[in-house]
Design a protein around this nucleic acid. Structure first.
Length: 741
DNA sequence: GGGTTGCCCGTTTTT
DNA sequence: CGGGCAACCC
């Protein structure tokens, strides 16, 4: 399916004997001068600072096409890494359309896919065998939880998810357990985080499994242990290209640094202003310090934006200018628009429901004006916001799709089905075994499984193989033998069947499909449909192994919006996309910037939130509509909020306030910049309808708190005051801890 | 072994 | 408010 997974290609290619041709290929002429420079400077380190909508994918693909077609390198001497499968696929397609089959054989894929490819070649050096499995986040948490429970840790107090996050951050930084320093250890889990990391890694190894972090970490380990292997890759990759460089973590940085050592032809494309994944381990520092690591690097700035109107660019630029420590780019308008552009609109609403109604009716108007639904997006900060829109869109009869949320491969029935397939392929897959051995119910309980694990431990076998040797009661013996027999039969037949046939057969004969047919819950029908969909997906693969590899790396259903429907998604998910009209609801303090981000990330997190706002606005070609609601139902309770400080950061000349006049003035050109706010936009009309807060002498007063600093009281509930702190956000505080100022 | 109740917790999530 | 999960009871 994907040439990245072709393991049998010749390892060391010959050097191309062709000398670069003097004549420029036609595709070069589509480039502007900066893009052209980024493409034609083939030798040495190049950093392309590529603002939103300035054609970065074009630069990357054209550069590869140029390198290959001009004889600078054979395809397999090119390593091009992306973050998403989608980006990799897109590059592959564009490349093929430019130079056709000449592009085949390039190492083009996600970091993780390339990691798998390398590890499958040298598994033994990192303690694996060739058929190791890749765990998804669900498996990871399950394994870790088990380990924590075994270690006697109260998983109620210490969430496995949080612990997993700590481990992931270590992996992101390229740190194996033995390399964790005292300073890096945390107090989490009573200071036992490190020992849990060790135990977790040991467990993965005994399962012959790796997690996503390992796909980056273990190749580094391999390179350390086998300098000869490293050297071969260093020699092979004559040209390295990196997409979304601002999102690389330390482990990825180390990869690139090691692999580029020999030829030093590394071209990184990114935008520090669009770095929105630091909470997942991405280090903006990588892009900021490129010039320090490669002092001879050519830095190219792509600032001609071919996407958005002057007003959108004006707002986005002004907003992002509030961040410090940027490499600094200014987007310039690169396209001619017909007629005057629409200003960025801002609308205040009374509550979240009205906001949804207002946006949906605006969408209807856009439709009447001839805009197609697929050209419209609603981008939210947090998942829960999508619900209000979903309800309104249904009411209005507008076709829509919510992107994200439930992932196809994370659904229970799909994971079960995949577990069956994995076990057929590899009976050593203990996790899959445990998942489905009693699903549907076969009368195999904890006792029986404990006996099987004991046997597995004693004889050093997989659970599957240990069944035969386990001490079991007659009923359990019968049930387990039948299960093992079934899987073995299936395994033998699998060779003669297509992957889709194997799946259909095992899920029918094992009773799994019946299990859902008999389920009378509302979701059961959908689950059966999903299994059908899985057969469809499977029909695209030649072997079960190909599918499993694909399914472990592609965690989303590859959501394609083909029909004419509007999309609703998070700002994070929108990166890299483009729409004619973009709605940005929920611009309120506490929601955007998000309170939680501010609480544990402080100023750095605020800047990341601002970058998120920048990403959101720059998705739009013609129209951006920002909105906020004074009241919002959060966790079943009405809460009120101030308009986001980001709204104040937009230049008045590019903005138009479309709010209902009864809500007062929202945009105050003379507003105090920064965090200090001394009045509310609704000061003239106190909110009482949804809030139990009564007017009091305390509301509106400035206060000081020892830990949170200065703030303004926004609500009073007896002695508990809700205070909007200038820096730390909104909190409920007992009056006695506050000082009036 | 399975269903029910009651409690806790709630941002974003490329692979 | 609602989902997820663990303890609890049948």
């Amino acid at each position: 399916m994907d040439d990245i997974f072709d393991l049998d290609e010749p390892f060391l290619p010959e050097q191309p004997s062709v000398t670069p041709k003097p004549k420029e290929p036609a595709f070069i002429h589509d480039l502007n001068p900066e893009q052209r420079q980024a493409v034609l400077t083939t030798e040495g380190p190049v950093l392309v600072l590529s603002g939103a909508g300035t054609g970065k994918t074009k630069v990357l693909t054209t550069r590869i096409a140029y390198l290959i077609s001009q004889g600078f390198a054979w395809p397999r001497q090119i390593l091009a890494v992306t973050f998403t499968n989608k980006a990799a696929r897109e590059m592959k397609e564009r490349l093929e359309s430019m130079i056709g089959p000449a592009s085949y054989g390039a190492w083009l894929g996600t970091f993780h896919a390339i990691g798998v490819k390398i590890l499958r070649k040298f598994p033994e050096d990192v303690g694996l065998t060739r058929d190791f499995t890749v765990l998804n986040s669900d498996d990871q948490e399950r394994v870790l939880k088990q380990i924590m429970t075994d270690a006697g840790i109260d998983v109620k107090r210490y969430a496995p998810a949080t612990m997993l996050d700590i481990i992931q951050r270590w992996k992101d930084r390229g740190v194996m357990p033995e390399a964790v320093t005292a300073a890096q250890n945390t107090a989490y889990c009573e200071g036992r985080a490190l020992s849990l990391y060790q135990a977790y890694q040991a467990r993965l190894q005994s399962l012959n499994a790796v997690d996503f972090g390992d796909l980056l970490l273990l190749p580094l380990e391999l390179f350390k242990k086998r300098p000869d292997v490293l050297q071969r890759y260093q020699q092979q990759f004559k040209y390295i290209l990196v997409d979304e460089y601002q999102d690389t973590n330390v482990a990825q940085y180390l990869w690139l640094r090691l692999l580029a050592q020999e030829h030093r032809n590394i071209c990184c494309v990114g935008d520090d202003d669009q770095s929105i994944y630091s909470w997942r381990g991405a280090e903006v520092e990588n892009i900021l310090s490129f010039k320090t690591i490669y002092p001879d690097a050519l830095v190219v700035r792509l600032e001609r934006n071919y996407r958005s109107t002057e007003h959108i660019l004006g707002c986005a630029s002004a907003l992002i200018a509030h961040n410090e420590g940027r490499l600094g780019k200014t987007l310039k308008i690169g396209k001619h628009t017909d007629g005057p552009a629409e200003k960025v609109s801002i609308r205040g609403f009374w509550n979240g429901m009205q906001e949804a109604k207002g946006i949906v009716s605006d969408v209807e108007q856009e439709q009447l004006n001839g805009r197609s639904l697929s050209d419209i997006a609603i981008l939210v900060r947090a998942g829960f916001q999508t619900r209000a829109f979903e309800e309104e869109l249904i009411r209005a009869g507008i076709a829509y799709k919510i992107i994200g949320g439930f992932k196809f491969y994370e659904r229970e029935e799909i994971r079960d089905a995949v577990a069956y397939l994995r076990l057929i392929l590899n009976t050593n897959d203990d996790l899959s075994f445990l998942r489905i051995v009693n699903k549907p119910r076969r009368g195999i309980g904890d006792q029986a499984l404990t006996a099987v694990s004991a046997a597995a431990k004693t004889f050093k076998l997989s659970l599957f193989d240990a069944v035969a040797l386990a001490e079991l009661k007659p009923a359990a013996r019968k049930a387990l033998d039948a299960f093992v027999q079934l899987m073995k039969q299936e395994r033998e037949q699998a060779a003669d069947l297509t992957p889709a046939q194997v799946a259909r057969h095992i899920l029918e004969t094992s009773g799994y499909v019946d299990f859902w047919r008999q389920d009378k819950s509302i979701e059961a029908e959908g689950r059966l449909e999903n299994l059908q969909e899985l057969y469809n997906v499977l029909s695209d693969f030649n072997t079960l192994r190909d599918f499993i590899e694909y399914a472990s790396l592609v965690t989303d259903a590859d959501e394609q919006v083909t029909a004419d429907q509007l999309v609703v998604m998070t700002l994070h998910a929108s990166k890299g996309l483009e729409f004619g009209a973009v709605y940005l609801p929920g611009w309120e303090e506490g929601l955007f910037p998000h309170q939680k981000a501010l609480d544990d990330g402080g100023h750095a997190a605020l800047e990341e939130e601002r970058r998120l706002a920048y990403v959101g606005m720059t998705r739009a070609r013609e129209k951006v509509s920002i909105s906020f609601a004074a009241n919002r139902k959060v966790y079943g309770q009405w809460q009120n909020a101030l308009p986001s400080r980001f709204i104040d950061e937009l230049p008045p000349e590019h903005v138009i306030d479309l709010s209902d006049s009864s809500l007062g003035r929202h945009i105050r050109p003379d507003d105090v910049k920064g965090f200090v706010r001394t009045e509310h936009f609704w000061d003239s009309k106190p909110i009482q309808a949804f809030s139990p807060a009564v007017q009091s002498k305390r509301v509106g007063k400035r206060v000081y708190h020892d830990s949170f600093g200065y703030g303004t009281v926004i609500r009073e509930e007896g002695e508990r005051l809700e205070v909007h702190f200038d820096v730390s956000g909104t909190k409920k505080i007992l009056a006695k801890f506050l000082e009036a100022v």
